[in-house]
């Protein structure tokens, strides 16, 4: 069925009207979206987390460990105090983490105990050279 949009001119068909509407909608949507990026999160503070930390590997290590704040901070409920400063200093970098202290419930071992999170003796590749980062 062909219905004239402007009957006097008789140039707009149903198809062209639909196309026009779609284009108009797309234009308005793009304009609004482009003008206010992250409109849904307006006013939410921008969080700049520290860069990933690559720990130096010990001898016989299956691979270097890369720690990501981006992964861990949401898991800790956005609470820096979940780990700092009781487990790790916040102002100084942690130079050394041993499996012995982790097994004793310190450092990573406080959460990675096999209950709250995967245990530190369970799967080497989970932390060591998991392939996410060199």
């Amino acid at each position: 069925m062909r219905v004239a949009y402007f009957p006097s001119r008789g140039v707009c068909t149903m198809e062209s009207r639909t196309l026009l509407c779609c284009l108009l909608f797309a234009f308005v949507f793009a304009a609004t979206w482009g003008a206010t990026p992250l409109a849904a999160e307006e006013g939410a503070p921008e969080v700049r987390l520290p860069a990933d930390v690559t720990y130096r590997s010990a001898e016989n290590s299956p691979g270097p460990v890369v720690f990501s704040h981006t992964v861990h901070v949401p898991l800790a409920g956005d609470r820096c105090v979940a780990c700092h400063p009781a487990l790790f200093p916040i102002l100084r970098p942690t130079e050394k983490i041993t499996h012995a202290e982790m097994s004793a419930g310190k450092k990573c071992g406080a959460c990675h105990d096999g209950v709250a999170a995967s245990g530190v003796e369970d799967d080497c590749a989970h932390c060591h050279g998991s392939g996410e980062k060199p």
């Binding site: 820096c80 200093p89 916040i90």
Partner: peptide
């Protein structure tokens, strides 16, 4: 309005 209540300030204060 920019604070998310992460507590990093308290942690750093303790340490410093």
């Amino acid at each position: 309005t920019r604070c998310i209540g992460c507590g990093a300030c308290s942690a750093a204060c303790k340490e410093a």
